[in-house]
């Protein structure tokens, strides 16, 4: 059935005369000229506007800030990769954090715990977008897809030198097409929300109710 359908559909689409479109230029890269400070400012404004928490830190202080955030939120546990550069540092100072959990097995083996027993997850990011206040997250074997989705709190670190002005710029500068797309790539711009009831914003519908961004300068 499917093969016949395919042939029929494509044949029908080939039938009509198609006018030349004349569209060649793709000139929609950033027309903004924002320096780092401006990008940080814009990013922060946008993130705060959608109720994300943003912390400005340095390479020396980010770990303290993450630790303080965990304490302030009263987290019982934190899901952190033991394999990433940042994750290793947290694991190395485990006593400053709530009970550390690791995503070291396929989801099927511990789905119940992930869905009902994890308070928060900590992940890195691939970059950020200043214009829209967005994190770029490319899940991996070390930091799988559900980490930034299932726990009620998501703490993400963004290094300021990977904060781009626009989405288009990030795609181009990071060479997404050339590198090949990962199985899943995400833009995350705030905590999960809905306005389906009377246009009133409610947070934490299916994804995290809280998004904490730790900006590292």
């Amino acid at each position: 059935m499917s093969n016949t359908a395919r042939a029929n559909i494509l044949a029908r689409l080939r039938e009509p005369q198609r006018p030349e479109c004349g569209f060649s230029e793709r000139d929609y890269l950033s027309r903004y000229d924002w320096d780092t400070a401006e990008r940080v400012k814009r990013f922060t404004e946008r993130m705060v506007a959608v109720r994300a928490e943003v912390h400005h830190t340095t390479a020396d202080t980010w770990l303290d800030v993450v630790s303080q955030v965990c304490a302030a939120k009263g987290l019982n546990n934190l899901l952190v990769s033991p394999a990433t550069v940042l994750g290793k540092q947290i694991h190395a100072q485990a006593d400053r954090f709530p009970a550390l959990k690791t995503y070291d097995q396929p989801i099927e083996n511990w789905k119940q715990e992930l869905f009902y027993g994890v308070d928060a997850a900590f992940t890195g990011t691939t970059g950020g977008i200043a214009e829209t206040g967005t994190l770029i997250v490319m899940p991996s074997a070390d930091e799988p897809r559900l980490m930034s989705l299932v726990p009620p709190v998501h703490i993400a670190v963004l290094e300021v030198d990977k904060l781009y002005t626009t989405f288009a710029e990030a795609v181009q500068v990071q060479g997404w097409v050339q590198a090949g797309m990962p199985t899943n790539a995400l833009l995350i711009s705030g905590p999960s929300k809905s306005a389906d009831i009377e246009q009133t914003l409610a947070y934490g519908v299916h994804g995290p109710k809280e998004l904490v961004v730790v900006l590292v300068e």
Binding site: R46, V50, E131, T132, G133, T134, M181, P182, T183, N184, A185, L186, L187, I188, S189, G190, P191, S192, K193, G207
Partner: peptide, 11 residues
Amino acid sequence: PITTYFNMISG
């Protein structure tokens, strides 16, 4: 300006 999630699935 953008939605909370933009999900790109390539496999």
